[in-house]
Design a protein around this nucleic acid. Structure first.
Lengths: 222, 222
DNA sequence: GCAAAAGTGTTCTAGGTACACCCATGT
DNA sequence: ACATGGGTGTACCTAGAACACTTTTGC
């Protein structure tokens, strides 16, 4: 089967920077490529768009096919199209970033990915193509968005403590926050609610549990 | 000549929302389409990418070819790729927005554009494709960016008064600003300088003239 | 002298930052 | 009793908002 056009067409892909937070550290999901180019290199999940497929749907499908991950929060990041960024042919990649709570994921390698793994953001291996700059831009966008939206709640499981939420902010921003100021701020946002339960986490006072009021939605603040 | 691929490839275009400000009103540059689809409709300038051309270069080239406008400030906006947005074939459009001072432009129709004209943003004609939503998103981005960058300076000619700059902000935001607070704010940004000249604009006191310190660069503030 | 836009400071308010101690639990 | 993280309130500071009169020019 072959498809012909009167003018040359670039290939279009989506690439996804999937973030989660584990052990108080921001992590990115990578696949080890099973075929050339960059065979055996680590890369972002992603791939070629189907001819009748929406861009975001393509990103979700590739993520599911290559890693088994579904049900994430997804947002378009930027479109990367420098000629030569893929040695095979002209490839324009619409990059997305996605967030998932660490308890909502069971990854598996599939499709043309030999292997799937989470990497600490500050300990990434060398990446294929221009994927390092895609990851860098995604992290920058995510950090910026913490300050004017409730996007961080997308990392939270169904029930969580305020300390856990604070650790999420600290992991992304890479700095310690003041406990009292942090709690005052997130509680006045009125986006999480005290569910009246508590959880024992060690040899100390149990922590109150909270839940996101509108899961799946990200609101702008300030 | 024909180009064949083993998998179908979408076409890739760029579309450009070029803004300027004239008579204290935000305006958008449109072309009247000379060919189908949407023949005779107004649309954003833009067109198909060349196979070895960078995305931003494509946007600048299309703008130049179709309207004669060059030397603008350009920024990637969003990528629109809903299947069916172009009736001919699958087209993915990387949208850009651009800003130009009103004195830096001489428009002319060329290429497949029959006609080129500026329209007040609040009096746009019906647009081809999904160009209305592209314009809406560009305006939203521009408004947001006024609050955390010096992007408005891209609209200013070489010499301008503080009142003129204020009118630019007011046109984009669609609201009146306080003169004293506005002046205090832009002067503390330290991005424009008093060039020691003044200009008479009518039967009243002449206004001091200012110039942008670093033309062509947009800084983040706050 | 009158019309018209240019230019200029102070007060108030709200949101952000800095900061230290008691509480509930397990061992 | 002690170690550990959970939970709480106040004072300060700074940036943004509100607000009115004098100046310089042309006619």
């Amino acid at each position: 089967m072959s498809y012909s056009y009167t003018h040359p067409h670039p290939a279009v892909t989506t690439d996804i920077v999937l973030f989660t937070i584990r052990d108080h550290r921001l992590e990115v999901l990578l696949i080890r490529r099973g075929s050339d180019p960059f065979k055996d290199s680590w890369a972002l999940p992603g791939g070629f768009i189907n001819i009748d497929e929406d861009l975001a749907a393509c990103a979700l499908r590739e993520l599911e096919e290559e890693t088994g991950v579904a049900g994430v929060y997804l947002e378009q990041l930027y479109t990367f199209g420098t000629p030569g960024r893929d040695p095979r042919e002209r490839v324009i990649s619409v990059a997305y970033y996605a967030l998932v709570p660490p308890d909502r994921i069971s990854i598996r390698a599939a499709s043309d990915a030999k292997e799937v793994a989470w990497f600490k953001l500050d300990k990434l291996p060398p990446l294929a193509f221009d994927h390092e700059s895609i990851v860098a831009m995604a992290h920058k966008r995510l950090s910026a968005k913490l300050n004017y939206s409730t996007i961080a709640l997308q990392f939270m499981p169904e029930k969580f403590t305020l300390s856990e939420l604070q650790q999420v902010y600290e992991s992304i921003l890479g700095e310690k926050l003041d406990k009292r100021n942090f709690r005052k701020r997130v509680l006045t946002l009125d986006c999480i609610r005290d569910i009246g339960e508590s959880r024992r986490n060690g040899n100390h006072r149990p922590a109150r549990l909270y839940a996101v009021k509108s899961p799946g939605t990200v609101e702008f603040i300030r």
